[in-house]
């Protein structure tokens, strides 16, 4: 009976529903030798490079992709992105701060470095408008965290929910 109750409770937890997907990329930016980050590293995608070149304050001559992680955004739970699968030196935790409005989603976003919380922010993310965070220095360049809202799940209408 208790097992049934637990299962029913679990099935009703809409907090675990995904409201969208978030991609977090770790990029190395430098005006010097990009190979200092690693010789086998690739450049960021064409879309990311185009976005990086449009930035006003974060500007580097060369970029390398250190890693990326795409995670579902759970409706009411804290989520973690670990762009470098093996290293946990740079982490990002995120959590929706409410329902998506149109194509926007307000988030609580935390940036962690070396197991310490460095920054907490409340950006409103929009598909096609990434957030770039210039983080710590490393090997003659800077670590850049790119946060992109990849998709938002459309809310079911109230009429559908009632049925």
């Amino acid at each position: 009976m208790s097992l049934l109750s637990a299962q029913t409770s679990k099935s009703q937890d809409i907090g675990t529903d995904s409201v969208g997907e978030l991609k977090v990329s770790l990029i190395f930016g430098t005006d010097g030798d990009a190979d200092q980050a690693g010789k086998d590293l690739k450049q960021p995608s064409e879309i990311q490079l185009a976005a990086l070149k449009k930035l006003k304050t974060i500007r580097f001559a060369h970029y390398r992709l250190l890693g990326e992680d795409q995670q579902p955004i759970l409706r009411s739970y804290e989520n973690w992105a670990n762009p470098m699968k093996n290293s946990k030196e740079i982490l990002l935790s995120f959590q929706p701060r409410g329902k998506p409005i149109d194509d926007h989603l307000k988030m609580d976003l935390e940036f962690w470095q070396s197991h310490k919380k460095i920054m907490k922010s409340g950006p409103t993310l929009k598909k096609g408008k990434p957030l770039f965070i210039q983080g710590p220095a490393w090997r003659g360049g800077k670590i850049i965290i790119a946060v992109e809202l990849m998709s938002l799940v459309e809310e079911k209408s109230a009429k559908v929910d009632k049925n």
């Binding site: 699968k85 030196e89 070396s114 408008k129 957030l131 210039q134 710590p136 220095a137």
Partner: peptide, 25 residues
């Protein structure tokens, strides 16, 4: 096109730490 946050005053990651290879403090 984008939102930018620049953090200044952060402790640099040690160059000895090969984060691309999976190293962590």
């Amino acid at each position: 096109d984008a939102t930018e946050i620049i953090l200044r005053g952060l402790t640099p990651i040690s160059d000895e730490l090969d984060i691309a290879a999976g190293d962590t403090s």
